[in-house]
Computed example of a mutant assay.
Amino acid sequence: MESDYKKVLPLKVADLMTLKPISVSPDIPILKAVSVMARHNFRRIPVADGEKLVGMISLGDIHRAIFMKSFAGS
């Protein structure tokens, strides 16, 4: 297993990155973002405004928001 790590160490990010990443727009509804994430089996997804990266959203972010909304409504 150690030899496998040694093979990866000289690689650069460009060698591994996704060239055409899937992202969501900051103004789409949360349920649509979750749908995109589920369709692609993602736990997080970049948020882009046009071609500019403006953030990331994760399932944890969404769960926290639901919990906080539910807690605040009690």
Results as ranks from 00 to 15, higher is better:
K52Y: 07
M1K: 06
L31A: 10
I28F: 03
D49M: 08
L16K: 02
M1Q: 04
M56T: 12
T18A: 06
E2L: 02
Y5A: 05
V24S: 07
I45V: 14
S70A: 13
L31M: 10
G55H: 07
I66Q: 15
D61R: 11
K20Y: 05
I22M: 10
L11T: 09
L19T: 12
S74G: 03
L19H: 13
K7V: 00
I28T: 08
M68L: 14
Y5C: 00
A65K: 15
A72Q: 08
H63N: 07
V34W: 04
L31R: 08
S58C: 03
V54K: 09
I28M: 15
I30T: 15
P46L: 05
P21F: 00
L31E: 15
K7R: 10
P29H: 04
S35Q: 13
V24P: 14
P10Y: 01
L9N: 04
I57W: 13
S35K: 14
A72C: 02
S3N: 07
M37A: 02
S35L: 04
K12R: 07
I22H: 11
E2V: 03
S58W: 11
H40C: 08
A65M: 15
G60F: 10
P21Q: 00
D27Y: 01
D27C: 00
D15M: 02
A72H: 02
D27K: 07
L53I: 13
I30K: 08
A65V: 14
I66H: 14
M37L: 03
S23A: 09
V47F: 04
H40Y: 07
K32N: 12
D61K: 12
F42L: 09
I28G: 08
P46V: 02
P46S: 03
E2T: 04
F67A: 13
I22L: 13
M68Y: 11
I45C: 11
P26N: 05
G50R: 11
I28A: 05
D27F: 00
P29C: 00
K7N: 06
D4H: 05
G60P: 06
P26M: 05
G60H: 12
K12E: 12
L59M: 15
F42C: 06
V36F: 06
G60K: 12
K52F: 06
F42M: 11
V36Y: 10
R44I: 00
L19Y: 02
S58R: 07
D15T: 01
K52W: 05
D15A: 04
R44G: 14
F67G: 05
F42G: 10
F71I: 00
L11F: 10
L16D: 02
T18F: 01
S23R: 02
K20D: 12
P46D: 07
K52D: 14
H63L: 11
K6A: 08
R43K: 09
L19D: 12
N41W: 02
R39T: 10
R44E: 13
G73V: 00
P10G: 01
A38P: 09
G50D: 12
M37H: 02
I30G: 06
Y5L: 09
M1R: 03
G60R: 13
V24I: 14
G55W: 07
L16C: 10
D4F: 03
R64T: 14
F42H: 10
I30L: 12
I30S: 07
I28S: 08
D4T: 03
H63T: 06
